[in-house]
Design a protein around this nucleic acid. Structure first.
Lengths: 363, 363
DNA sequence: TCATGGTCTGAATCACTAC
DNA sequence: AGTAGTGATTCAGACCATG
């Protein structure tokens, strides 16, 4: 069976049909980046009156949830047919579609191993201030069934993460700059190209050299590019000729690495900052607590939302610890963490010591 | 209807029945931490051969996905009955159940606003090294329907995050130490007690002072404790008397934030509107006064009826401060309050400061 | 060559009121 | 119910022009 499987090539056509035609149990890993069913309506403008270039391609339009569910069930079922019994499936999505994908793959008998959060270091903001900034996407990693003996490169993942177990949240930047494929006019070639760093971690964690990776929504071929670099075999399925042509050109330029395990990794473990508000949420400081500068010349009161309120001869000042510290001193700027102190057993300590406690909790 | 709703108390019993009996459209926010359907089989052992004290309660056992789905549909539907049209729902879960919860709530007509990742700073490691360390849980935030005018404390969230808009990933520690409720023998009283910091952020972002928060899986009452502290009204539903008793004792000890004004959040959106003409009526600006943009590239004259007149290479423009500001810049829109400035002692100030004076005069 | 400042952009379910 | 008017709203990072 194995040698019948043509790898390292793109099949152009409908992925459900093409996967059903593949030999059963021939693929080690499926990575799928299906349409998200975003249901966007109308234009979104930035505050500077420019238009956001959103996803409005035909392939992301579905009549309703029922239609999307049928589509999802079909391709997940066909993908299951191609998978070896010990193979695993990856799917990436957002809150628009990921719940439906997850529930359907559970119904089909897949066994969820992890849900993984791609925490974007540079997401698009929420321009209208109506929701939390949507700063992540979700991947589901699942084995073909509950009892399958799937592969997981535990040690490699730990090494990638400074000798700490790799967690289920990955902080990685978007695909921008030189990595982003563009057409002749400089426009992005594909609206949802994924960063190679994401596929690197997916393939390093769940495949071995020479394993076969199938991507039924190949797009511009990020999966193939990273698979080739890591000496995995790959099969891409893509409906649109334009994307397939771009992917072929792209992958042709990729060079394989001699020893994948020696690859240098961009592990951007950027520690999230600690906002002052966290100290209140976590009970280190209560709303109403008084803060002082070191010599007790200035005094401010903590509010529930993490701002301070204080008064001096110029009037009342409300805002961040930094802004109020600056205003009270009549200075253009101030580091509130070292300026403001809290009282403990009669003596004053800078609020920075509380921040250090929060950071140390995080390891 | 409002005064019929008994708040700040725990109802002991089945949440589906009790929610159905509540008056329709009476609750501002539902926060739910339902059973996760963990499907643990057998005991999990640490490397040092001690047993992990996992969730092994009767209430977390369901025969199959179908049974869990029916349960989920029932309580989500009953919760929808209690919600005001502009109310919102929060649900927390893990990959065991969150896909089913998310898909079902979408099917019921809820409209997902965000999925939120609770990124645990101190998660339990994966002891067997067979998966990624499960270091997060997922919350879904949804409005009752697509068109509802839900409440979101955008400015408060931004303030909590040092003046950057709050993202969809929240890094917070587990509930441990003194915050964790324990029984007489020192055992944790509830296996899945959530940290108060998590509820703080949930309630600060989506409720106002005196709003009603309903928690149908109340457990040991974290939602009630934080709601009381933040001066929100709360209703808890809990099936087990033991948990309800512990929750009552716990909440009785909670102190409300002493000064309600510390809980106030300010938002430009909720300020009363002031027509520009009011500034002229009240003598803040005289007809004939010249207004400028910040760099003095544009100039306009105030007319007695509260409109402006200005000229540029495209011709003469008359109309509101916004229309004329937009026309002068060749933009589709413009906020005239911040664009136009008046001269005072040689320096320019935005006319917005005059609007603020009018608002503060009115209290 | 380096520092600085302006511009552009990324899977986005992104306003509300009065007439 | 549809339309028009008011006026609220963005973060990180790459790239480019300028000094």
């Amino acid at each position: 069976m194995r040698d019948k499987l043509a790898t390292n090539r793109i099949l152009v056509g409908d992925c459900v049909q093409l996967m059903r035609d593949m030999p059963a149990g021939s693929v080690d890993v499926v990575f799928a980046d299906p349409p998200y069913n975003l249901q966007l309506s109308g234009d979104l403008m930035r505050p500077n009156h420019t238009r956001v270039d959103g996803v409005d391609e035909d392939w992301d339009r579905f009549q309703d949830f029922q239609t999307y569910d049928r589509f999802t069930r079909d391709w997940l079922d066909a993908a299951r047919h191609t998978l070896k019994d010990d193979g695993t499936l990856w799917v990436i999505g957002s809150y628009h579609n990921i719940f439906r994908v997850g529930a359907i793959l559970q119904d089909l008998g897949y066994w969820v191993l992890n849900d993984i959060i791609w925490r974007k270091s540079n997401p698009m903001p929420n321009f209208k201030g109506r929701r939390f900034a949507n700063a992540h996407e979700t991947l589901i990693w699942a084995s073909k069934s509950k009892d399958s003996k799937y592969y997981f490169a535990y040690e490699a993942m730990k090494a990638l993460n400074e000798d700490l177990q790799m967690r289920s949240d990955w902080t990685l930047p978007l695909c921008t700059g030189g990595e982003r494929l563009r057409d002749e006019t400089g426009q992005k070639a594909h609206p949802t190209q994924k960063p190679e760093s994401l596929l690197f971690r997916v393939l390093m964690s769940s495949t071995k050299v020479d394993d076969v990776v199938l991507d039924p929504f190949f797009g511009t071929g990020t999966t193939g590019a990273v698979a080739k670099r890591l000496r995995r075999r790959w099969i891409g399925i893509e409906r649109e000729h334009t994307y397939a042509r771009l992917a072929n050109e792209r992958i042709a330029q990729v060079e394989e690495v001699a020893e994948p395990e020696l690859l240098e990794v961009t592990s951007k473990r950027t520690q999230p900052r600690v906002p002052f508000g966290n100290l209140i949420e976590r009970g280190y400081l209560k709303p109403g607590t008084m803060l002082f500068d070191q010599r007790r010349r200035h005094i401010a009161k903590v509010r529930a939302d993490g701002t301070l309120v204080a008064q001096n001869h110029l009037g009342e000042h409300k805002g961040s610890i930094h802004k109020v510290g600056a205003a009270m001193q009549g200075l253009p700027a101030c580091n509130g963490w070292t300026f403001w102190h809290f009282q403990q057993d009669g003596s004053l300590s800078p609020i920075d010591v509380l921040r250090q406690q929060v950071i140390s909790e995080r390891h």
